[in-house]
Design a protein around this nucleic acid. Structure first.
Lengths: 218, 218
DNA sequence: ACAAATTTTTAGCTTTGCCTAAATTTTAAT
DNA sequence: ATTAAAATTTAGGCAAAGCTAAAAATTTGT
């Protein structure tokens, strides 16, 4: 697979996930930042290679083989994102561009060992689930922190209240988008939470917890 | 810079280091596993871009700019090799192919943070020195372990005695090619050494030490 | 239903990096 | 000093992946 073929497969995967039907030539062109005519050319090639199902003027869908390929690329992309954030101190919003390059590195051992090195993460810094080696993956859902079950881990993906005092609080406590948070325990008395973030335990009020969104694995 | 251009620059750098004069078209072709005519084409392009000095039929040398570029690629290659061995448990001889791909990833921050993550290593798993960010680097030399000064660190790069009993000893003590070894102390009485390898201290006889080659930074 | 608008495909051309075959230059041998 | 051998370059082509312009198919609006 060439680099370009991989990009197309990944984009067809992402576009096809939302929709129910097949993916249009124009939508692919837009995402690839290329012209529809170029897309037609590539689709033909992918079709010949058995990666997509294609009928003229009808758009494309991934074949089973194409889907497997797409998931392997997504897996690599998300594992590298975790690596960049957890090991190299990249922030949440800096990782995409670099992961976009790293996802094309070809070495099965590299991916497996990276996975192991990272402790087999299930979720990336944007809260998206990481496909397993054989292409399975969990669905993720967005929940307010105070609704996350005890013991669960999630990624901080947003705030409900975006007032300066709240944001300042988050900043002071070093809670940022992309951070991984686990719920250790909940106080029955006031609904306050004990959470673990960056290997430290902190205690936060229900008020805080009900204004922070996490993305967790179901 | 395209991927291919980077490969040429790196190869010209490596070929030019040994020789005194300029690098021949044929030698580049051999290393690139391509034809001399293709090399000529590429050399012209590199020359136009100011990366090499070229006169027809006279071979090429790197320009100052070309050298800087080459060193940056070598730096990335060797840092990734350290990463693969130290963090992902790759062995000495498995890293090259993967590093060959990783060296082309474009992100200055990635390289800087990787360097930091690895503790600013000066030497790669083959014992070759890693250029600093601004392209300087130390010379490395090969020494028998018993001749390495106390306090120095080096990479195990070979054995003098390759008899089964010796190799078995190395295996039992988990000493392998590519391992980083530091000399902690030397006993005056029998010349035996205290060394640190993989974060553990062990004690070895002078006999052993005088049959193991390390590559150290001068 | 059917013309207009939109989407998709085709045809033909460009660039990059490679190739083969032939021409040219340099090097080596007698 | 010539000539044979080896190295290098030129010329002309090919495949991948893109582009523009024009043709064809589909969808939409009334």
């Amino acid at each position: 697979m060439t680099l370009s073929e991989e990009d197309y497969i990944k984009i067809i995967y992402h576009l096809g996930k939302g929709d129910l039907g097949s993916v249009s030539t124009n939508s692919i062109a837009e995402r690839m930042e290329t012209k529809p005519s170029s897309v037609t050319d590539m689709i033909k090639k992918l079709s010949e290679k058995g990666l997509v199902n294609y009928k003229k003027y009808q758009g494309v869908t991934l074949s089973e083989y194409g889907l497997k390929t797409a998931l392997s690329i997504v897996r690599k992309h998300r594992l590298w994102e975790v690596f960049l954030v957890e090991k190299l101190e990249f922030s949440w919003d800096e990782v995409h561009e670099v992961a976009e390059q790293l996802e094309h590195i070809k070495s099965e051992k590299l991916v497996d060992m990276l996975d192991k090195h990272l402790g087999f993460p299930q979720i990336d810094p944007h809260g998206d689930p990481i496909p397993s080696k054989d292409g399975e993956f969990k669905k993720s859902i967005k929940r307010l922190l105070n609704e996350v079950p005890i013991g669960k881990e999630g990624i901080c993906v947003g705030v409900k209240d975006s007032s300066p005092p709240f944001l300042k609080f988050l900043d002071k406590n070093k809670i940022a988008l992309g951070d991984s948070i686990s719920v250790i325990d909940k106080e029955e008395f006031d609904g306050s939470l004990h959470i673990k973030i960056r290997e430290v335990d902190i205690h936060i009020s229900d008020q805080i917890a009900s204004n922070l969104y996490l993305r967790i694995i179901e």
